[in-house]
Amino acid sequence: MGNRAISSPRLFIECIVVIMSTGHVLLGLLAERPQHGYELKKEHDQRLAGAKPLAYGQVYATLQRLERDGFAEVAETRQEGGPERTLYAITEEGRAELERWLGTIEPPAPYVAGGLFARVAVAGKAADGYLVRQREAHLARMRELTAEKASGTPARVLAADYALQHLDADLRWIETALARMKEEGDHA
């Protein structure tokens, strides 16, 4: 999906989380049924409770980008006295892109929680395979960071601690999510 001129590392990180997830989350919601922009906003804010609510402008900008990239299309346009309402639907290509995203693990680093959470919010129990692989990737990275600490400068050790504690927080969430999915599965 599109990229933007990047001026600072902090902005870069926020852009990745925001741009990468929003398009895919909207695709995930469209995969369930065709929806209007305002429905998408409502669904998004509900599923990703705790994340920043989507601005309408961002919803429409994202939809336009999805349309431009061939991932979504206009299914219906209607105007009944009120404002024009456009119903969006996911395309075959969009489904393929969604599948690809759900199958891709995040590089284990602090700040990826947005993409991690978004996959589960969108895919629900279907994300359990993803979570198991993401957990392995997180643990592998934690092993590397722990090994680095043995020979690192004090500054490197502090940085490694910072990354380790954030990855650990992600991991504990992953484990809780897997346990909840299993519980739901047992009760179903």
């Binding site: 392995e136 643990l139 934690m142 092993r143 722990t146 504690q165 650990d168």
Partner: peptide, 23 residues
């Protein structure tokens, strides 16, 4: 504790008395 497990060369995960497959 995953931060302690990260000291190991590898990991064996148990769930309900069995080795968790796929990990």
């Amino acid at each position: 504790d995953n931060r302690v497990a990260a000291y190991a060369d590898r990991e064996i995960t148990l769930r309900d008395g069995a080795v968790l497959a796929g990990v």
